[in-house]
Simulated assay, not measured.
Amino acid sequence: MKTTAMRVLGVGSPLLDLLARVEEPFLEKVPGAKGGMELLAPEVMDRLLEQLADEYAVVPGGAAGNTVFGLARLGVPVGMLGKTGKDAYGEIYRSSLVRLGGSESAFFETDQLPTGRCLALITPDGERTMRTFFGASSDLTAEEVETVDFSAYDLVYIEGYQLFHQAMIEAVFRQAKAAGCRIGLDLASFEVVGLFRERLLELLKEYVDLVFANEDEATALLGDKPAEQQARELARFCEIAAVKLGPRGSLIASGDMLCHVPADVVKAVDTTAAGDLWASGFLFGYLHGRPLSECGRYASMTAREVVQVVGSKIPEQRWEALCRSFQPYNN
């Protein structure tokens, strides 16, 4: 699908997702409890991968990365700002984006750390046990950010996890604003919001045009109140605010307008990256100037597809179907 959409720069951790189906006994070899996400030393991850004997899939991931790859699949011109190691995993990540027409000009490399990875161990009950090594992705500096030509992009989309790298992400906000970019921010998790709540409120007022949150994140930021009220309050900070309600759909607010968009409810196999691909669909509509209710409908459609697969990789034929459904608009 060819489009005339504006250019989007994703800012996040370029991680390779390593997806493996395992039996319950395998988890006895894995540090930490079953389920959730914990950090893992790279040498321990390497030992686990050796025991899996290459029986795992390698898929580009990371929160902003998932959104950017989704946009690229929909024909939107994209780039990614992040850091990888000078290794095979880094090459996989970069080349995967370039094959979809994305730009690697804002990628940085280091030979001091390997590319970040997230090992996802999926047991027969469908539960995912994730062990992550951030590696080179955590080494991006403010000085490197300041060399990026933000004027080459129209919208900068940031994953909230980058708030852990304060100097770097502050440079992103400043550079993007100075270049006249619109700025989108996903709040990432309620833990992130809780840690950075006061600064987040300032950033939303000063820099952010679009903010995406789920109910837990909105509650951590604004307090326990009806989702409709949370969406309206967020829209006082930003031009557009979305509160995602899972199977109950989403609320989208802008100015005095508030709309509810139903979810496309299907049997979910894995909800990983559902919010990230939701953002892909929403941003596709936004960049083409569609009404916000229609942007939300696109978002529901992309989220519907990804929850029916393990991981973030929607099958090629389903992308083709989505592209046919997302009629190209030349605004």
Rank of each mutant, 00 (worst) to 15 (best):
T3E: 09
V8M: 14
P14V: 10
L15D: 10
L15C: 05
D17Y: 02
D17R: 00
L18F: 04
V22N: 14
E24C: 12
V30Y: 02
V30D: 08
G35N: 10
M37H: 10
A41K: 08
V44Y: 01
L48M: 12
E50L: 13
L52E: 15
A53S: 15
E55M: 09
E55V: 00
Y56A: 15
A64D: 14
V68F: 03
F69G: 07
F69I: 09
G70H: 07
M80Q: 06
L81M: 08
G85M: 04
E91I: 00
I92Y: 02
I92A: 10
R99A: 15
R99S: 14
G101F: 13
F107H: 02
F108A: 12
D111N: 15
Q112E: 15
T115A: 10
G116S: 07
L121F: 14
L121W: 08
E127P: 07
R131F: 15
F133P: 01
F134E: 11
S138V: 06
V148E: 02
D149K: 03
E159Y: 01
G160T: 08
Y161H: 04
M168C: 06
F173Y: 11
K177P: 00
I183T: 05
L185N: 03
L185R: 00
D186F: 03
D186Q: 04
L187V: 12
E198I: 03
E198N: 12
Y207C: 00
L210A: 04
L210N: 02
F212I: 11
A218E: 09
A220S: 12
Q230I: 01
A231P: 04
L234Q: 03
C238K: 05
V243D: 11
V243G: 13
L245A: 13
R248F: 04
L251T: 08
I252Y: 11
L258H: 03
L258Y: 01
D264N: 13
V266K: 07
V269P: 04
A274K: 03
G275R: 01
G275K: 00
D276R: 00
F282V: 05
G289M: 13
L292Q: 07
C295E: 11
S300A: 15
R304P: 02
V306M: 06
V309G: 10
V310M: 03
S312T: 09
Q317G: 04
L322Y: 01
L322Q: 03
R324L: 12
Y329I: 07
